[in-house]
Nucleic acid binder design. Structure first.
Lengths: 201, 201
DNA sequence: CTGCATCCGGGCCGATACTG
DNA sequence: CAGTATCGGCCCGGATGCAG
């Protein structure tokens, strides 16, 4: 990317991560170290040359590093971009209405809406294990010790299983009455969801 | 900008503000409503057509609005981008070493480093008024009630006056011993600066 | 002078094909 | 699996024109 040539911390930050796709690569690495093809799968729409170029640039600039097992991982400085990604995600929450027909989705992306919806610790939250099926891979949403998190894979003994389109799942977890929420099949008692106390919109 | 077509809050956010120059336009409006030419002056390097286009897009999307006095201003939703700009600025702080020869600078940009360096309230901070001269316009850095802020203009009765290159000024305020800091002329007692307790790097 | 619109060259982006 | 090569098209950047 062309530099903005401004002596401004924000502008210099954008010189590093302001390119198209760059911060989405970072988003993918926030789930942990990933291999090239895993990144490709998590970034529907990116061209292979662009992914390669972004990985090279970000490595040169010290945002990520390549490990011995051929995986890419965020450096400690790169980890600092979590706040940036979350800040944008939080700001853009009003944009998360319905899915468009040509919108892509990956189950592990659920981590971010969950992070925003259930930020911090809330002791009122009961322990709860939810299996979520949204198409490409099952994930588990777990409430434990007042904290809500997302894990890959299908839980052994879920209290609740949700299956349906992503926008419906998110609406249901957020406690919103949206048309899409009605398309979600629920096994178990839906009312348990409200006890997780999602943040108001 | 081409949409990423991903049902992800972060990606949808970038669909709105991910274009080149877009967040820098927002940065400029964080100082308050501005007219077209004022924005142009605060965004050295931007092409006039691009500024016009960004302003139109951001207005359509509800990030900013045009006022009756022809000024552009952030909407309430647009104000939410402050957290994003600050998050990037905070992350990019390690990049704020020396100025490059072709780096542009505007005095009002000092607001962001100050925000990052002196975030929050610290009761140990004594009241202090500092005049700062960096080239294009004088600004005032003021400590009051434990909070440090930046105002446009030259103070009436400064306790201290700093004049020199921006990187030197920032280094001095941050309490860092950098070569550039030695190029700053100081009128008054430099040691008063340390009492403001800047955050460690 | 302010506030843009138009035009044009160059570079980045996106899609596909291909290689070790 | 992990990229490189290639090429058309679009966005960006700089210069210029022009209306209120």
């Amino acid at each position: 990317m062309r530099s903005y040539h401004q002596y401004c911390s924000f502008a210099r930050g954008l010189d590093v991560v302001g390119d198209r796709w760059t911060l989405l690569v970072v988003r993918e690495l926030m789930y942990g170290p990933r291999r090239y093809n895993e990144l490709l799968a998590g970034l529907p729409g990116i061209a292979t040359n662009l992914l390669a170029e972004r990985l090279r640039e970000l490595t040169e600039k010290g945002v990520l590093e390549r490990r011995s097992d051929q995986r890419y991982a965020l450096t400690p400085w790169g980890e600092g971009l979590r706040d940036v990604v979350h800040a944008v995600g939080r700001w853009a929450r009003p944009l998360m209405g319905e899915m468009k027909v040509d919108d892509a989705f990956r189950s592990h992306w659920l981590v971010h809406p969950i992070h925003v919806l259930f930020e911090g610790v809330d002791r009122r939250r009961p322990p709860l294990t939810i299996g979520v099926e949204m198409g490409d891979a099952p994930v588990t949403v777990r409430s434990k010790a007042g904290r809500v998190s997302v894990l890959p894979g299908r839980p052994d003994a879920p209290d609740l299983v949700l299956s349906g389109p992503p926008d419906g799942i998110v609406a249901l977890l957020a406690g919103l009455e949206r048309p899409a929420a009605r398309k979600v099949k629920v096994q178990g008692d839906v009312r348990k969801l409200a006890r997780l106390h999602p943040r108001a919109a």
